[in-house]
Amino acid sequence: MASLSTLAVVSQSGESISFFNNITGEFTDRTENLAAEPHDLAYDSPRNLLYVSHTYSHGHYFAHGSICNTISVIDATTRKFTDAIELTPFGGPHGLSISPDNTILYATVETGFPNGGGLIGINLASRTIVKSIPSDSRAHWFALTPDGKKAYTSNMNSPFISVLDLESEQLVKKIPVTGSSQGAVSVDGRFAYFPTPSAQMKLEIQPTIEVVDTSTDEIVKTIPFDEGIGALHVTALGKILVVVYRLEEGASTAALKPKPGGLIVLDPTSFESIGEVEVGKFPLSLRSSPDGLTGYVANVFGGTVTVVDLESMSVRRTIDVDTKPRADKAFHQGAHGMALIRG
């Protein structure tokens, strides 16, 4: 694979994608005037395209405007919008991931099924929906197993994680949790990890990471945390990246009042912390380099990305994506989805 020399980052409130040199952090380009409001990013390396989900006309999961029903296609070479993939009758696309064989773009959707949302699969050659699997929930995030046969949707405020068989296109199990945010699957596919509860659900609930055996889809270990967990990510070296959010005194489910959060790295065998650094306000999205040595944290309310050396556990740089709130936006969400791309 050619070097992934560029970091692409969505500004949700800014309705744009900013591009940065992945070696120096220097700003190189921006795609503006995207449809409202972009959320997640997926990179199609064989075609050198970016796919951008648009979930709501404005706002966030717990307070938002009308549901959107498109995914934008961006040419990663020219940085230009080229197409919109229409998803009707499905709506509220959010999490994105491409199948291991690079043929299907999977997206969670919050509406369109009889009992809410689920996961849809879009053929990347025809750009038509070829798979639709209900989650019996308002699906928001998801994690794929390495073999591409199974997905787990994190349903935010639903009391379960949905286990989806992607071959039979069936909901096969519900794993009980107290709400959940972005989870991840181990490199070998043996375990899945999910943070609970989701942010803004019940701040007084003990935060935990639930470890799921993917052969039985049963919780086999619970890891307690002292702080709310925003998301998880597993690097190519198997390390578990955990972002925690921190709130000012007086924060509530209605007003989070974030302050700088943290990135904690867990050993995948002992689940003990092997390092921690401070990041920006309300870290939400995580990525890592193909060699597993660099971590990227998008701080949604801070409008920045924290680039972390995962060997020395030090902050390499902080990238300003979109730190200036817009007067016409009720919420400033200046850094969300990320992708490492060629060019």
Rank of each mutant, 00 (worst) to 15 (best):
I341C: 05
G303I: 04
S312G: 12
T294S: 11
S314Q: 15
F331S: 03
T294W: 08
G303T: 07
I319N: 08
F282D: 05
P290Q: 01
A330S: 12
P290I: 03
A330K: 15
M313S: 06
T318C: 04
H336D: 02
E311A: 11
A335T: 07
P290F: 02
K281H: 09
T294L: 06
G295V: 00
R326H: 10
E278D: 14
M313L: 14
P283M: 14
T323S: 05
I319G: 13
R326I: 04
S312I: 01
F331I: 06
S285N: 13
D320V: 07
S285I: 13
P290R: 00
T323K: 11
N299W: 04
K281N: 14
G303D: 09
G280Y: 02
L293Y: 04
F282N: 11
G292P: 03
H336K: 10
A298M: 08
L340N: 06
P290W: 02
V300F: 01
S314Y: 01
V321I: 09
T304F: 02
Q333D: 07
R287E: 01
L286A: 08
P290M: 02
G337K: 00
K324L: 12
S289Y: 06
P325T: 06
G292R: 06
L286G: 09
L284Y: 13
S312L: 07
G337M: 00
G303H: 07
A330V: 10
R287Q: 03
H336G: 01
H332S: 09
K324V: 15
S312V: 02
E278G: 13
M313R: 10
E278N: 14
L310S: 07
Q333G: 01
R287V: 00
V315F: 13
L284V: 04
H332V: 01
I319R: 10
T294G: 09
A330F: 09
